[in-house]
Nucleic acid binder design. Structure first.
Lengths: 126, 126
DNA sequence: TGTTTTACTTTCAAAAAACAAGTGAATCAA
DNA sequence: TTGATTCACTTGTTTTTTGAAAGTAAAACA
């Protein structure tokens, strides 16, 4: 007899139909949006994300990248012609996160002292 | 001989001067922004946040509220005249999170099927 | 060919989250 | 005024996630 804990068939572990809650289920943690930020800044490789100043642990990076792949937020392409290494790129769904990143950058700059944008002032993001 | 791990004097545990990283240190988790959302929706009491459909555990709610207080994002006022119960309100710094919430709601509605805004369509947030 | 780089995976201790239950002050109903 | 109920937590306990370090295998480079 199968023990039904929750119906994860229709929508795997969605807490509510709220779009904010749903978004947080995808990227509601301390690292995911930093990977997105790096992608926006032009980084494409595992080692590049790992080299960011915040120092994401590689196991966390690995898990986050596969989650983003699973959610269709990033895709993998060949790093360069003939290369067997892979590069990560934002999909359209991933690029649609730009306004969120822009709003967060603006809030941080306005309210948290000592912050500086490596993201281009207004053009790149937001 | 004091072992200096990190200089937490100037800015306690800031990972980098990036405003996005800094913002994530404040509200980069699955719950905090849902409390902010509830505040935007007009909820002010502990029990109201706890009653939201996502079902935040009370110990987590408690911890998040004190963190938000510590960061000056919410403040406490008397729930009603003469009452000794307290109500939570967004400060200006907290209201400045509205564009982030709005951008997240828009992204969720656009890219995650089955989401619906209890937040007023465009007027309330964003 | 041997060395280095890349992109992970594994291990494991520590921290955080989830869950359940308890507590005491405040409010309310009789 | 007493007793029940609500409120806002706090306290255990278990489960999950992190984070730091080390290990690994394929690819690239010399």
């Amino acid at each position: 007899m199968a023990k039904r804990v929750t119906d994860k068939t229709s929508s795997p572990e969605r807490r509510s139909p709220c779009p904010v809650a749903c978004a947080l289920d995808v990227f509601g943690d301390r690292w995911t949006l930093l990977v997105i930020r790096d992608l926006v800044l032009g980084k494409t490789r595992f080692k590049d994300f790992a080299a960011s100043p915040e120092g994401i642990p590689t196991n966390v990076l690995s898990e986050r990248l596969s989650r983003l792949l699973a959610h269709g937020i990033v895709s993998q392409v060949s790093a360069s012609e003939g290369s067997k290494h892979l590069a990560y790129r934002l999909t359209e769904k991933g690029r649609a996160l730009l306004p969120i990143l822009g709003a967060m950058r603006d809030w941080g700059l306005a309210w948290e002292r000592g912050t500086r944008a490596h993201l281009g002032e207004a053009a790149t993001i937001g």
